[in-house]
């Protein structure tokens, strides 16, 4: 008879074990707010199709204190999403050589963040120009 009796430890609460895991979970949980924001927009589109009164009701709803607080939280979460998205990007991209040298992780993350700032400013300017 074998004296072996390998012991398998539980994974319950594994994500609380390490600060690294907590930041990973924070990154993943941003998705809940992305979904909620998409649902708010979806409601806007549906209300838009129901006529002016319905759409104005939705616009009015956005100005309620709860929705203002909600959107401030969503904005903070989206900024964290942007940061974490480009932070993990060097791990998700193939190795790239640029002028014979390997592109460094910091360069990839930095380029992504700069691209995001430029894209956001472009959206703001376009919307300002359109209205």
């Amino acid at each position: 008879m074998s004296a072996r009796r390998p012991y398998v430890r539980s994974m319950d609460g594994w994500w609380k074990r390490d600060a690294y895991f907590i930041s990973y979970m924070a990154r993943e949980v941003t998705a809940v707010f992305v979904a909620l924001y998409a649902i708010v927009l979806l409601f806007g589109v549906v209300r838009l199709s129901q006529g002016e009164a319905a759409f104005n009701g939705w616009l009015q709803y956005l100005t309620t204190p709860w929705m203002k607080v909600f959107h401030l939280i969503v904005l903070a979460v989206f900024c964290y999403h942007t940061w974490s998205w480009f932070n993990i990007m060097p791990k998700t991209m193939p190795i790239i050589f640029f002028g014979g040298k390997r592109l460094q992780p910091g360069t990839i993350t930095g380029t992504g963040l700069v691209a995001s700032v430029v894209a956001c400013l472009a959206v703001l300017l376009i919307v300002r120009g359109m209205s």
Partner: peptide, 20 residues
């Protein structure tokens, strides 16, 4: 998750090897 690459004592970066 990416923690594998943090703890690797030889700088292997498994997260990159997999995700790319």
């Amino acid at each position: 998750v990416g923690y594998c690459s943090e703890v690797c004592p030889k700088g292997v970066d498994p997260a990159n090897a997999i995700n790319q």
